[in-house]
């Protein structure tokens, strides 16, 4: 179990991390998700021992490792741009961690070679050991980097944007494969990504970060279905946001009451967040949100409709079943928000 306690780090005047607390369970696949500048890579590098915090502790299984260098932490680290040693063959790259061990701890040469070949088999690159990194594709290189990290039998695997440099197709294949490999090996793993789809598909739990702080920790399901902050709601999945006012225990969208759980919001300004598909068309009846249609696109089996909310200068996107005829641009459409979440914005009216 990895425990991070009150971790803070500044780069000059820029606060990269502001008091991070986090538990990583044994065997879990954890994603650190956030936009650039959110501190996710810094957190990963501090856990690795490639960077050191200004305050706070890092513990591996109850043992304080905050001051330990990367070499003494038994972690495997995979870099976005692979960081393969280009003057060495693939097999020598994989064997590197074993070959630099002190005499006495270093296995005999034949055994190192056998281990490297075994790991290359594991990452499905058996027989390519004699090649140089330049002779491999991006996806293959990243698998070599993974085999190299696994060679030292780390207690923790850390991956920094591992698919970031790959093209879309390879990325998808590699990520499925990595998910399966993790399932088989059960090695505690943390990976950093700015791609929410990647985080939701791969991880057991997702840590959403913004501006050096953790916004939410939870399963992909919880992160997507029950975002706990406006940031998470915006960042994960598609989301619309409308300004509302809370008065007398109810939310109002320009003076009309809306049925939505208050989610702890007190009287004042708030934001109403809802997904494009959590909306139904309700004609012109009273109580519907009047929408001026500004764009219609076909998206799979649905119409993606862009519309301006009458009365306020806000555009929202909704999905309606393509069973309906597509509304014409410039016409009015009444919609009903079926599921939404309310977030206090802080500023008072």
């Amino acid at each position: 179990m990895i425990t991070v306690n009150g971790l803070s780090k500044r780069f000059g005047a820029f606060p990269a991390l502001k008091g991070i607390d986090l538990d990583v369970r044994d065997g879990e696949f954890l994603a650190l998700l956030g936009p650039s500048g959110s501190g996710k890579t810094t957190l990963l590098r501090i856990i690795a021992g490639l960077e050191f915090p200004d305050a706070g502790r890092v513990e591996f299984n109850g043992e304080d490792v905050t001051g330990l260098k990367v070499a003494d932490r038994k972690v495997g680290f995979v870099f976005q741009h692979y960081a393969l040693f280009k003057h060495m063959t693939v097999a020598d790259n994989v064997a590197f961690g074993l070959s630099v061990r002190r005499r006495g701890q270093r296995p005999p040469k034949a055994q190192i070679r056998a281990r490297a070949e075994e790991l290359l088999e594991l990452v499905q690159l058996g027989g390519l050991g004699h090649r140089y990194p330049a002779q491999l594709s991006g996806g293959q290189r990243q698998r070599v980097a993974l085999a190299r990290a696994l060679a030292v039998e780390p207690q923790l695997l850390l991956l920094d944007e591992p698919f970031g440099a790959l093209d879309a197709k390879v990325r998808k294949d590699l990520r499925r494969w990595l998910r399966q490999l993790h399932g088989r090996m059960g090695l505690t793993s943390i990976f950093v990504t700015h791609d929410q789809e990647e985080a939701l598909e791969l991880a057991d739990r997702v840590v959403v970060m913004d501006r050096g702080a953790i916004e939410q920790v939870g399963t992909p399901e919880a992160i997507y279905m029950a975002p706990e902050s406006a940031f998470v709601s915006d960042f994960v999945g598609e989301s619309n946001s409308l300004p509302v006012t809370v008065t007398g225990g109810r939310a109002h969208l320009f003076d009309r009451p809306i049925d939505v759980a208050l989610n702890g919001a007190i009287d004042g300004a708030a934001r109403l967040a809802f997904r494009p598909h959590d909306v139904s068309v309700c004609g012109e009846r009273v109580g519907c949100l009047p929408l001026l249609v500004t764009g219609v696109y076909r998206s799979g089996g649905e119409w993606r409709i862009e519309g301006e909310v009458a009365g306020i200068d806000r555009t929202i996107e909704i999905d309606v079943s393509a069973a309906h005829p597509a509304p014409d641009i410039g016409t009015r459409l009444g919609v009903r928000i079926e599921r939404a979440r309310l977030f206090q914005t802080g500023e008072q009216p």
């Binding site: 690795a48 021992g49 490639l50 260098k69 990367v70 070499a71 972690v75 495997g76 680290f77 870099f79 741009h81 960081a83 393969l84 040693f85 590197f96 961690g97 630099v100 061990r101 980097a145 190299r148 990290a149 060679a151 030292v152």
Partner: peptide
């Protein structure tokens, strides 16, 4: 610094 950090993370000394 990636290559150096990779080497260090694999247990290499500064000299190695």
């Amino acid at each position: 610094r990636d290559d150096e950090e990779a080497a260090l993370s694999l247990g290499a000394s500064g000299f190695q």
